Amino acid sequence: MAESKPSAEAMVSDVHKKIKAAFEAFDYETNNTVDVREIGTIIYSLGCFPSQTDLHDFIAEVEEDHTGYIHLDKFLPAMAKILLEHKYPPIPEDILLQAFEVLDKEKKGYLEPEELANYMTQEGELFTQEEMDEMLTALADHEKDLIYYKDILSQLTIDPEL
C-alpha cells in the first residue's frame, strides 16, 4: 500500500507547530515575543540559512515598530511562508565539508578556534564576536580546544525534510 501524502492543511499545521516551538524556546518572558537578536538562531534552528541581507530584510518585515522585539503573530505567518516555499535551503553536507577542507590548508582534520574565528569575522558575511563565541562554545572539542569539522557536520546541516 502506497504511503499517502499529508494534506496541505496537515503540512501547514506541522510547520506552524515547529515554528511555534522554536520561537517559544527564546520567549523568555512567555509573552509571545522574542528579542530581535534571537531571530537568526530561531531561523537557523528551523533549517533555513538566509544571507545576512535576507535575514535583515526578514527582521525588518516582522519587527514591531523598531522596538527590538518580534511578536509571534507576525513571525509565524512570515516564517511559515519561507518554510513552505523552501526558501533559504540548508547547505549540503558535502559542500560544507569542502569549505572546511579549504580552510584546513595543512589537512589536519581540525581547525583551531582562533583560526575559524579569524575566517568568520574577517571574510565573507562577517560574524559578530558574540555569534562567534556562541558557535565556538557549541562546536569546539572542549578537552582539546579544537574543532574537528568532520564530527560536527551533522550539527551544521539539517535534513531538508520538514
Rank of each mutant, 00 (worst) to 15 (best):
Q52H: 07
N118V: 14
L103R: 02
P160M: 05
S154H: 14
H66G: 13
A8D: 02
L111T: 00
I70L: 03
K5P: 00
D151T: 07
S13N: 10
A22Q: 02
H71Q: 10
I59P: 04
K5T: 11
A60N: 12
E114A: 15
P77I: 07
K18E: 01
Y149M: 08
E123P: 02
L162C: 07
G68F: 07
E38T: 03
N118G: 05
I70W: 06
P160D: 04
I42Y: 01
M135W: 09
G47P: 05
I152F: 08
I91V: 15
E143V: 04
I95T: 14
L97F: 06
L153C: 02
D133L: 12
E131N: 09
E63Q: 14
K105C: 08
D65V: 01
I147E: 05
A140S: 15
F49C: 11
P90E: 08
T30L: 13
E130S: 12
I19C: 05
E114I: 10
L76P: 01
K74N: 15
E24D: 14
F75H: 01
I42L: 03
Q122L: 15
D145A: 09
I19L: 02
L136K: 04
L83P: 03
Y44W: 11
A22G: 08
E143C: 02
A60T: 11
T121R: 10
I158G: 01
E143D: 15
M1K: 12
F127L: 15
T33S: 13
M1E: 14
S13Y: 09
Q52L: 06
P89R: 07
T53S: 12
L76R: 01
A2K: 12
E130T: 13
